[in-house]
Design a protein around this nucleic acid. Structure first.
Lengths: 236, 236
DNA sequence: TTGCCAGAGTGATTATTGTCACTGAAGTCG
DNA sequence: CGACTTCAGTGACAATAATCACTCTGGCAA
């Protein structure tokens, strides 16, 4: 009886795993249409599939990165942190994208560093650098993928830099909300404190500015939620 | 007589050009030791050598970039500009380095854009993208060079972002002066207005903060010049 | 020499952002 | 159902930076 039950459970787990593998393979194909088949096979064969829960830390600040990271499902937030724990949103990784830093292996330990955190339950594939290095020459489409990723992250970083360098806090907040909307839709489940962290400012500042936006009719506020009505009319 | 003189001039010019080519070839070898010989030959054969004067604009804001840019001699400043002309120093290109953006061909026309300016008389080599694209597969060392460049620029951009996001103006100014010292030595020939532009702030702010630094003994100010004495004791 | 001008110094004022201190309000868990 | 915790709102104030309005100065050109 006990044995039987255990056996049944085991087959169930196997089935689930196989199903998961097949699902991942399908998703991989859909998400990275430009990759040659041999490369996709290699990713599935050599990569480690990880499912992580909302809030999990994938890369913590100061840690050495030794694997490339591909996002299959869910949303991953990449931030920069300084010595005294202040953080700063760099960009989001959506399914089909990779962390440029994990590709760069830029892990020279500096004063401030990178952290990656799952915003929702997520599935990611990690591939050790020793392998991806050889892929650079073996698979043309991997090389292209790396360069394309580089470019995209570089551009995003530039846009982020722009908004910090040239814009005031109210503009940056609107910019932030728009970006959030792109990745999470019109109803944001986020606290003022989190927004303040992402913008590297104080909660009170965010609260005040959000209140102003609500009064202008651009958003509706409620506890732990922000509903975006229309941000387009704000600032040209 | 006239013919003779003209002939002489011509040979002199040729000699000068050949000398220049040889000099450039020597410098190229010294500056890019990791490149295979065939690649260096290709660069010299296909690249266009340009000598530019101090203050010349190599890439102007909003313009499409269609060549890779290698710096052989001199110093090039890469800045970001926004819609209303405010600018912002991203990083310097020293001899032996390339512009990541020119490698990325990130020239999707955005609201704000990049400008590159010669800070001193400079020699650069430009190679059209159509060629560098093929080099990616033909020369392994070119590919490595591109990736290394990417990485370096990405890191520099992150450090710049850090200083904007986390530091106050006085710290940023010290950071800026240190960076200047690295590329130009202890005696900087620069006006307060230029510094203000690079930091995207107002001249008065820079003047005031510089005065404070002078009073603390870190620098000595004179018209159009700043002599750096010791910046290390400022901020930890 | 004189006049001009860009660069630099400075005070006064305003705007923006950060900090402190506190009050409610909305869950949530025993 | 309280007791507790987290989140949000707000006034008061401080600190930083931007802006305005000047003056002063050194160097250069007519």
């Amino acid at each position: 009886m006990t044995v039987n039950s255990s056996y049944e459970q085991c087959t169930l787990v196997n089935k689930a795993l196989i199903f998961d593998m097949e699902l991942t393979a399908t998703k991989l194909s859909a998400l990275f249409p430009d990759m040659e088949q041999a490369l996709k096979d290699a990713i599935l064969k050599e990569g480690i599939i990880k499912t992580v829960k909302e809030g999990d830390l994938l890369v913590s600040s100061g840690q050495y990165i030794k694997s490339a990271m591909l996002v299959i499902d869910g949303l991953v937030k990449v931030s920069r942190e300084d010595e005294d724990g202040k953080e700063f949103l760099m960009y989001y990784l959506e399914p089909g994208s990779a962390c440029a830093l994990s590709l760069l292996c830029a892990a020279r330990s500096e004063k401030s560093a990178i952290s990656a955190k799952a915003v929702s339950n997520a599935t990611i594939i990690t591939v050790p650098f020793v392998l991806t290095e050889t892929w650079q020459t073996r698979y043309r489409t991997w090389h292209e993928f790396v360069v394309a990723t580089y470019r995209k992250r570089f551009e995003e970083l530039l846009i982020t830099l722009d908004s910090v360098a040239f814009k005031s806090m109210d503009e940056r907040l609107v910019f932030y909300l728009k970006r959030q909307m792109k990745v999470s839709g019109k109803l944001l489940a986020i606290s003022h404190q989190e927004i303040a962290n992402d913008l590297s400012t104080a909660r009170e500042v965010v609260s005040r500015l959000l209140k102003k936006l609500e009064q202008s009719g651009a958003i509706v506020l409620s506890r732990n939620h922000i509903e975006i009505i229309n941000l387009d009319k704000i600032f040209d």
